[in-house]
Nucleic acid binder design. Structure first.
Length: 271
DNA sequence: CCCGGAACCTGAAGGC
DNA sequence: TGCCTTCAGGTTCCGG
């Protein structure tokens, strides 16, 4: 599923194909994926506009247009953006047509993905917490975020308002790397554990970007290739496999309706 | 404000 | 073989 490293990879691999080019039109095959504005206004405002910049904030992909507006895409759980192919890929819900002949197919089996055209991206991004890979995301900042939170650490890491971009897979991987039980109340971490977790979050995300993301289910890179980050996973989606550190089986428990994978020996908790 | 659960969706996989 | 249930999980909304 697209989390920060996957969206970052899509951004990087899409950039040269889109920056400086003009959107000649957009085709929507499923209207409800358009959050705002109305379809009519959307078509009117986007045609003929040049893409000047492509950025990522959290899990959002942002196409800055020369009109001052921004096309904002969230892939949610099953979305992918696939570059020009002869045949539209299966589950294509929208197509962005560019003046260089490139078509970008928004494929999304589950129809959770969303597109918006906004005048002010800030309205979307201001609700997000800091970017975990930027220099201003410090140990002290993480400590602040965890303070007074009695929810399970795993749930807190998934809260985009606290830290932007971490999803289910990388939360599990970061917690394993830091050897912390996902059920621990967030406030209960020691200063040392927070330091380890801070390092682990950044390490896990950076490594995954180097591997071009994780293709555990429906994620593909724009060229159609898979990422390889999942082949380095220690716990995520590894239920029953043996822990690389202690050789005990990885377990899966639900936390907030999410599958959470961890090693009960390396990440001991109260229960 | 904080927390937890349901809803949104559909396809794949597993059980009987 | 075929039907039924469960699982997958990012975000938003709602109730306590």
């Amino acid at each position: 599923m697209p989390e920060l490293p996957e969206v970052e990879t899509i951004k990087n691999e899409l950039a040269t194909h889109v920056i400086g080019h003009i959107i000649t039109g957009v085709t929507l095959f499923w209207d409800r994926m358009l959050r705002q504005p109305s379809p009519k206004q959307f078509y009117h405002c986007i045609s003929g506009k040049k893409i000047t910049e492509l950025t990522r904030r959290g899990k959002y992909l942002i196409f800055r247009l020369d009109s001052g507006n921004s096309l904002v895409i969230h892939l949610k759980m099953s979305g992918s953006l696939i570059l020009d192919t002869d045949m539209p890929p299966e589950y294509t819900r929208a197509v962005i047509h560019l003046d260089n002949g490139v078509n970008i197919f928004f494929c999304d089996p589950r129809k959770f993905g969303r597109i918006s055209l906004v005048t002010d991206v800030g309205n979307i991004t201001e609700k997000l917490g800091p970017e975990p890979l930027e220099a201003n995301f410090t140990v002290e900042m993480l400590a602040e975020k965890l303070e007074k939170r009695k929810a399970p650490l795993k749930a807190v890491l998934l809260n985009q308002a606290l830290i932007a971009g971490i999803g289910n897979m990388y939360a599990d991987e970061a917690l394993f790397a830091a050897r912390i039980n996902p059920l621990r109340p967030a406030y209960s971490l020691s200063q040392d554990e927070i330091k380890h977790l801070h390092y682990a979050i950044r390490k896990v995300l950076k490594d995954a970007i180097k591997s071009k993301g994780a293709s555990v289910s429906t994620y593909f890179r724009p060229g159609g290739e898979m990422g390889s980050a999942h082949s380095h996973f220690k716990v995520a989606h590894q239920k029953g496999k043996l822990c690389s550190i202690c050789s005990n089986p990885i377990e899966r428990i639900p936390i907030r309706q999410r599958g959470s994978y961890y090693c009960p020996v390396c990440q001991p908790g109260k229960d």
